[in-house]
Design a protein around this nucleic acid. Structure first.
Lengths: 202, 202
DNA sequence: ATTGACAAATGACACTGTGTCATATATAAT
DNA sequence: ATTATATATGACACAGTGTCATTTGTCAAT
């Protein structure tokens, strides 16, 4: 978490810093991002940076929570709209994120994040406990709505299914970045979803 | 690729360097690995390192090809043994790698690699064209053997299936690192494979 | 208006690590 | 013995990090 000193800054100054951070984190993966670039771009002294943030990770995570906050609402709306059907939800997430990637300015920022998620990284970038609770709760609701249409015996198995859907969606979003033909990319995604839905075995 | 200068070195010296590299790459992910540590451990001058390798990536990739070379034979044997059944092959790969992780000294090296593969990284660490050709060829043979038991219309779809199996296996191997109970971890893996095999939809 | 006390800003500094290069040393070839 | 060629070396310039003593700003109390 940033310090109070940071939060006490004028909106203008805070924005300048966040904008510079956004730019840097969009440029390269987190490990390669340089505080030097950020402070130069934001026109603050190096020392000030450390007055505001513990390190670049700290700033990065804060920036993430801001961005995720925006998406969260969309996500819960979407769950509502799809009446909880987990498969359709993920298809919607895919489409939504591809759309975001195409249109929005923070395009590159998200791309960096998606491309650089490591196999060992957790389900999601959601670490904040507040959202975590809501997720847990939502998960249970989703389970209730899906247990009759899915081949799952209990909530544990349902979680596995979600992880698989998540992994597929993530991989396919990244693949779409590299692919020129978005329609083609989407077809591959849907094909994989279908494989998971109906099984690969004859 | 390392330079000729490196290959001309005495076996002893080469081994000392590779051993030091192995140690460092087992310690931290590639980006954090330090050439300084390697040269100090291998007792060579900093300048010499750059006489042998372009950079740490170069050394890393060479080390990888050595290790993969060892596994390759095992893999092709396994394909033979399982008579090409792609699902069983992946279950075998899982078991084999878990075994390697438990037993072998290079334990940590593999763990680093598996944990730090990024979503944007390709199917495998196999970049060498030689092996690539053999893989392509093997892929076709595998397709022939599996097309009758799997729900795939063509080789493209078969490739998607392989990618999915690969992704699942990778994720589940990494999960097993974090899990104390290896049997539990294996069950989750098999469950996911079963989901893919028979579908998640009732 | 002056003082004191606290908050915030600053950049020089010590540190760690990278990649290069001129020079030194070894090996081989004639 | 001389020359050519290959190999080895560590000092150096550069880039980045995190810290800290010092400076600057703010504002309440006198």
């Amino acid at each position: 978490m940033p310090t109070n000193t940071f939060f006490n800054l004028s909106e203008e100054k805070k924005n300048k810093i966040l904008k510079a951070a956004n730019k840097e984190f969009a440029r390269v993966p987190l490990e390669q991002a340089s505080i030097k670039n950020i402070v130069e771009d934001a026109e603050i002294a190096r020392g000030s940076f450390y007055q505001y943030f513990e390190d670049k990770q700290d700033l990065f995570e804060y920036l993430m929570t801001l961005k995720i906050g925006n998406m969260q609402k969309n996500l819960f709306d979407m769950i509502e709209r799809e009446n909880g059907n987990i498969i359709n939800i993920f298809i919607n997430i895919y489409d939504h994120l591809i759309q975001v990637g195409k249109v929005r300015k923070n395009n590159k920022f998200f791309r960096q994040i998606f491309e650089n998620v490591k196999t060992s990284d957790n389900l999601m970038l959601i670490k904040k406990d507040v959202t975590k609770n809501k997720i847990e709760q939502t998960l249970y609701e989703l389970y209730s709505k899906n247990k009759d249409i899915l081949n799952v015996k209990n909530e544990e198995e349902f979680k596995l299914v979600i992880e698989m859907l998540f992994a597929i969606t993530r991989r396919r979003i990244v693949a779409s970045f590299k692919c020129n033909d978005l329609d083609e990319a989407r077809k591959d995604f849907l094909k994989e979803i279908e494989f998971l839905k109906n099984g690969i075995q004859k």
